[in-house]
Design a protein around this nucleic acid. Sequence first.
DNA 1: ATTCATCATAAGTCGGACATAGGACACAGG
DNA 2: CCTGTGTCCTATGTCCGACTTATGATGAAT
Lengths: 242, 242
Amino acid sequence: MKQAPSYLKNLKQESVVQSVINVLTDAMRNKELKPGDKIPPEPELAASLGIARSSVREAIKILTYLGVLESKRSEGTFVCSGFKESMIDPMVYGIILNQDSFENLMELREMTETGIMRLAILKYDKAEMRTLEGLLEDMRAALDSGEESVDAFFRADNAFHDQISQMGKNPLADKIGRVVRTLTYAMRYETVSAMIRGGRGGELMDAHEKLCGALKNRDLSQLEKIVRDSYFGEALQSKPEK
Amino acid sequence: MKQAPSYLKNLKQESVVQSVINVLTDAMRNKELKPGDKIPPEPELAASLGIARSSVREAIKILTYLGVLESKRSEGTFVCSGFKESMIDPMVYGIILNQDSFENLMELREMTETGIMRLAILKYDKAEMRTLEGLLEDMRAALDSGEESVDAFFRADNAFHDQISQMGKNPLADKIGRVVRTLTYAMRYETVSAMIRGGRGGELMDAHEKLCGALKNRDLSQLEKIVRDSYFGEALQSKPEK
DNA sequence: ATTCATCATAAGTCGGACATAGGACACAGG
DNA sequence: CCTGTGTCCTATGTCCGACTTATGATGAAT
């Protein structure tokens, strides 16, 4: 490996598209562009920067899919306010590309769900808890409804965790929790389905009830114990083929 | 607010660019496109799909910035293998736009760091622990070096947490941990700097030593106690203006 | 005042053109 | 042999100009 002389700096120049992105994001950092603001029309921007409209378009498109900008036909392009759903896509793509991420994903889920529950335990209010208990009822009802109760149960199960996620009152954590839940959807369905069909639906309900109880008592150590002992245990045991 | 009749489904058709993205990501889900694979040249793809090259380009660009594809001039465009750093960007943009996300970020950090430590406690090996202890030494050395020790300490501090992150042996969690650490870099620097200058460097060392000790004993409940009681406490207390 | 037609705007899409970087290959020179 | 150079080809990078289409605004007709 030959060592390049130090006076040779690597001068690969950034692409036109990248520089457009930089211009726009710099403007956002400087607060020259604030959420809700309209950026100049594409042709105008292209002219100002002395580049082609297609390059501007590519930059705008990228920022759009990143959830930074929002284009409305015939109106213009605007700086988004707050978080947008598309922010999660990059992570999703990252996951898709990662091959043997099953265990990693389940671990990540344990991480996020646990963290979210800790937040929830500190921040939820009574109304939210009532909603959560309602969802617990739904789960039980689904379970008792006999045949083909798996889908209904799973829906309620997901709603249950989404609710806890909301109760944490942290949009960032909530978002990540949802992403991870989405990514583990299929696997979790398999697990839940297998358990219910195997007559172990009671255990599932039990775990969720304990969980709900710990939340209701705002008992953090109990929550941690539940999570550690039982809640994720089944999922991590009944994993599919490697 | 007029309520639209339910039989009217919202049929805004997806854009050409979006459909290209779907085609490509579907192929990835089906494993027809695997990491490292080369996708057809832009003109060819455009012809196959019956659309213009510029649309294909926009889709590719987006996936490139999302860290899914990688274009090499004169060679072609390839599916990335593994995670790419660019995954960070979307979150960064999100943060730029979100004003009062400070608390949310710190909470998120507590979430991820805690989860990562739980993984680490289960999976690390002796060599990694030695490295970690070495970093602890670095931190102490930096602290004892008197004046302007803040930067050195902070560097070692970050390396310390990166090391724990690695010890968890979950690339996904590691990645997310790094992202969150990056996002909270400035805030953490402020906190650490203030503590050291305020003569509270000892507390900092103490917390990290206890942490390291809990890891060494693989004592999960002790770890949880530390995290809950002291470790993040200072950070959450000494937050800047709202 | 409400409804409708018209128009201007700006993004969406298209297709073609040239520039340019990088790899492959063959070839000359040591 | 193998090292370096020059040439060619490929595929992306960039640019241009045109048309299409959705949407808000304007103004006229009811």
